[in-house]
Simulated assay, not measured.
Amino acid sequence: MEAIGGLLGLVILVACIWAILQVVKSGAEPVVKIIWVVAIIVLPVVGLIAWLLFGPRG
């Protein structure tokens, strides 16, 4: 059971890093970028889901 939790944690970590890189590369305002990055770091799962649904595009 620990292996599943470790694997899930790794997947979440990789997804969060990917999301942060996408936020940084986006054309959004710098303040908006900072807010999204903080949200993803502080609330990894919730922040990631919120970014996927409402985050900046492009």
Rank of each mutant, 00 (worst) to 15 (best):
M1V: 11
M1Q: 10
M1R: 09
E2S: 13
E2L: 13
E2A: 13
E2M: 14
E2Q: 12
E2K: 13
E2T: 07
A3H: 07
A3D: 07
A3V: 02
I4V: 14
I4L: 15
G5F: 09
G5Y: 06
G5V: 05
G6I: 12
G6C: 15
L7E: 14
L7S: 10
L7W: 03
L8T: 15
L8I: 11
G9M: 11
L10T: 14
L10E: 10
L10H: 13
L10P: 10
V11C: 13
V11M: 14
V11S: 09
I12D: 09
I12R: 13
L13Y: 08
L13D: 14
V14P: 02
V14R: 12
V14A: 09
V14Q: 04
A15G: 08
A15C: 12
C16L: 02
C16S: 06
I17H: 07
I17Q: 08
I17L: 13
I17A: 14
W18F: 07
W18S: 12
A19F: 00
A19K: 00
I20L: 00
I20S: 00
L21W: 07
L21F: 03
L21H: 13
Q22C: 06
Q22Y: 02
Q22K: 09
Q22T: 13
V23H: 01
V23E: 00
V24Y: 03
V24F: 08
V24L: 15
K25Y: 04
K25G: 11
K25Q: 14
S26Q: 01
S26L: 13
G27P: 01
G27R: 06
A28G: 06
E29S: 15
E29T: 02
P30E: 13
P30K: 04
V31K: 15
V32N: 04
K33R: 10
K33F: 03
K33Y: 07
I34T: 12
I34K: 05
I35W: 06
I35M: 11
W36E: 03
W36F: 08
W36P: 01
W36T: 02
V37R: 02
V37K: 06
V38D: 10
V38S: 04
V38N: 11
A39N: 15
A39E: 14
A39Y: 06
I41S: 05
I41T: 11
I41V: 09
V42R: 08
V42E: 09
V42C: 09
V42S: 05
L43A: 12
V46G: 05
V46H: 06
V46T: 14
G47H: 00
L48M: 02
L48Y: 03
L48T: 01
I49D: 03
A50Q: 14
W51T: 03
W51A: 02
L52W: 10
L52M: 14
L53G: 05
L53A: 14
F54W: 15
F54I: 06
G55Y: 02
G55S: 01
G55H: 00
G55F: 00
P56G: 03
P56C: 03
P56M: 07
P56N: 06
R57Q: 15
R57C: 05
R57S: 08
G58S: 08
G58K: 07
G58L: 09
G58Y: 03
